[in-house]
Design a protein around this nucleic acid. Structure first.
Lengths: 138, 138
DNA sequence: ATAATTGCAAAAGCTTTGCATGGCC
DNA sequence: GGCCATGCAAAGCTTTTGCAATTAT
């Protein structure tokens, strides 16, 4: 995804287009690794040595506000950022702490069906996310 | 659960029995609310005004080490502590931030069966936890 | 006796905030 | 031009750490 496309994405969400925002959103998409704020800063500092960590956080917040990203909570308590907006789950690698998206419509259907039948007392479900922990084999 | 039972629980896990540890473990069980370290301190300070937050954290770590508790990661990044050791999932209330345990063997069976058939490429599953977000109705 | 635990205070992360400067629309 | 975003530094919060004093086994 090139600069122009990113700029359009920002505009469409009513966000001002700045070099910082373009760099940060590009980084998250390119890294494709659910990076932390720190990871993003490291990556963009190669090309934009002047962007500060504070700005990264502020930009990330504005992206979340605008529904361009979601936060992912981790074992360590550090937040990571996920640009995949469609419904999905996560695979957590216990060894490398890699987080990989897991999309599975059939599974979602199964869960939907299950919870349509078996209601939970006094609870209205909005969303179900699976945290699948394990290890990658290669 | 009274003091004696708690003391035995600690001993069995090879942990030294101290008033602090008894107070903290009792508090978590009585509160039954996946409390934070701060919540626990508030609760026990009524009876033990001298226990410090640092000690609470150290004791919680020793409990996790000994498999008496698990950590629960939350939206806000604060850790909460869960004394239920059998396999279970969590209901997250978006309004009150209440976390309630959800045990469902049938669901676990369904998931096991599903992932036995549909393997995930290059990934060995160790555990699956559902994060069910929504709201309580009452 | 001795090895582990506690309390206190300091420090360490990660994230947020304030405010003057600069840049986008 | 006006308002919003940025940079820098400071502050905030939760959690961890260090160490001397105390306590459990």
């Amino acid at each position: 995804m090139d600069t122009k496309e990113i700029a359009i994405k920002l505009s469409k969400k009513g966000l001002r287009v700045t070099p910082q925002r373009i760099a940060i959103l590009s980084a998250i998409i390119k890294l494709d690794n659910h990076p932390t704020a720190e990871n993003i800063l490291e990556y963009i500092n190669k090309e934009h040595p002047n962007i500060s960590l504070g700005t990264v956080y502020k930009v990330l917040d504005s992206f979340i506000e605008a529904n361009l990203l979601n936060k992912v909570k981790t074992e360590s308590g550090k937040m990571r950022y996920d640009p995949l907006l469609t419904n999905h789950h996560h695979l957590y690698c216990g060894k490398t702490h890699r987080i990989v998206d897991y999309e599975d419509e059939k599974l979602d259907g199964l869960l939907l069906e299950y919870f349509n039948k078996k209601r939970i007392r006094n609870f209205k479900i909005q969303d179900i996310k699976l945290q699948i922990t394990g290890t990658f084999k290669n």
